[in-house]
């Protein structure tokens, strides 16, 4: 196993600022929007993006967190028992522009589950998807609106997103087998 850093803390910070501005530009004057982070690391990224937006737009975005465990299409097949983290969306989704945020997009199945989960709360006006890393290998026709960094990967490789709040440091690494 060889682990190589592809983004350091400074680069992650810069990317998050850029993504925040892309979101601000996309929503324009639409004040009725909310950020929704996919647990666990997407939720942390959503928090960070929210504070950046607050700093530059002087408005505090609504924020929610999604646990997509119950919506996984492989829920009855996975051998590792998933712990429920619980969702936390304290606003009405109906009519809102939802900015969905996750750390990595890979097969697209997590995003599919998240879309279903959001729609079960109500009918949003629009959903925009933002990912820190796009590592390719989609199994569903789902594409992010904004990507922090596109990382071409081999299917056997692993992308590790480490965030200070959980892992004690900010870093994105790629792990190669061999």
């Amino acid at each position: 196993m060889v682990e190589k850093e592809i983004l350091n803390k400074h680069e992650i910070d810069n990317i998050l600022v850029r993504l925040s501005f892309q979101i601000i530009e996309k929503i324009k004057d639409d004040a009725d929007f909310a950020l929704v982070g996919i647990k666990r690391r997407g939720a942390i990224l959503a928090d960070r993006i929210a504070s950046t937006i607050e700093k530059f737009k002087s408005l505090k975005p609504m924020i929610g967190y999604l646990d997509i465990t119950l919506y996984r299409d492989d829920l009855t097949e996975i051998s590792e028992f998933p712990k429920l983290l619980g969702s936390d969306l304290n606003f009405d989704v109906k009519g809102k522009t939802i900015i969905l945020i996750d750390d990595v997009i890979f097969t697209g199945r997590t995003v599919r589950a998240a879309l279903d989960a959001i729609i079960d709360y109500g009918r949003p006006k629009k959903i925009i998807f933002v990912a820190l890393i796009d590592r390719g290998h989609r199994e569903l026709p789902i594409q992010p609106d904004f990507v922090g960094k596109y990382v071409p990967t081999n299917i056997e490789e692993k992308i590790n997103v480490k965030l200070h709040e959980i892992d004690g440091l900010d870093s994105v690494t790629i792990e190669k087998r061999g």
Partner: peptide
């Protein structure tokens, strides 16, 4: 602990999740 997570679902407008579909 798990029940606490499910209680939130019961307070939603659409009180359903696909966990045991089929």
């Amino acid at each position: 602990d798990t029940a606490e997570k499910f209680k939130e679902i019961n307070s939603r407008e659409i009180k359903k999740v696909p966990a045991l579909k089929g």
